[in-house]
């Protein structure tokens, strides 16, 4: 009897433990996303000039603050970017005063999304009262160098220009009142306070960045 039970048990469990299909998430992907900068990576393309909505060119290196630099890839047209825009503007208008430089970069090809042209960006910046540089990545090479795949996508660097946070603004684009984790705000506060960032990488849904086609060389 006992042996028969054990045999039955083995028959039941063996296919689950050994032959059951693994979790989808455990399988290697065939075509991964653009490879984003790893934590600790240096801020790339710091000396590339980008035109801002105020008509002035800036560089990421020039916009760096004494405590760090926040670079957010965003745009005008994307519903996710729009959903987070008010929260992003609040962060962008606050943190430069606290020592973290903020630049919001639009890398989308306006041929694909006319709303993302400089005129549209100027209008949005005025409407939202953006007090930080909202700039055009005219070749999309800055996004490529960061491995930025979507909007919005945040990259926070420390005072030495090393990446310390990458990901979402918070955990709820749709319902600001239901946000439980303010990831970016928490990362900024930890950075400014000299503490380790508890959640240095997060993900959120967003619109694929429509890279400009690279000119033939």
């Amino acid at each position: 009897m006992k042996t028969r039970h054990l045999l039955l048990l083995a028959l039941l469990v063996a296919p689950l433990a050994a032959g059951a299909p693994p979790a989808a998430a455990a399988e290697p992907a065939a075509a991964p996303a653009p490879v984003a900068l790893a934590l600790g990576a240096a801020l790339p393309m710091g000396d590339v000039k980008m035109m801002g909505v105020d008509g002035r060119e800036i560089t990421l290196a020039g916009a760096a603050g004494p405590k760090g630099t926040l670079v957010v890839f965003s745009c005008n047209h994307c519903p996710w970017a729009k959903a987070w825009e008010e929260r992003l503007v609040a962060i962008g208008n606050t943190w430069p005063k606290q020592g973290v430089g903020v630049v919001v970069v639009n890398s989308n090809d306006p041929k694909a999304y006319p709303e993302d042209g400089l005129d549209g960006m100027k209008a949005r910046a005025k409407q939202r009262k953006m007090a930080f540089p909202y700039v055009v990545d005219a070749t999309s090479d800055v996004a490529r160098a960061f491995g930025a795949a979507k909007t919005p996508e945040a990259f926070l660097f420390d005072k030495d220009g090393k990446l310390v946070y990458h990901g979402a603004i918070d955990d709820n684009a749709k319902e600001p009142k239901q946000v439980k984790e303010r990831y970016l705000q928490a990362a900024l506060e930890a950075l400014a306070g000299g503490r380790a960032i508890a959640t240095p990488q997060t993900k959120a849904l967003g619109c694929s960045i429509k890279y400009r086609t690279k000119a033939a060389s």
Partner: peptide
Amino acid sequence: SPLWSGALPATFIYDGAGTLRDFWE
């Protein structure tokens, strides 16, 4: 997929056993 950045569209192909075999953004 841990390799998905969250950008859209995203497409996943599973085999008949439900194992993820291909993915792209």
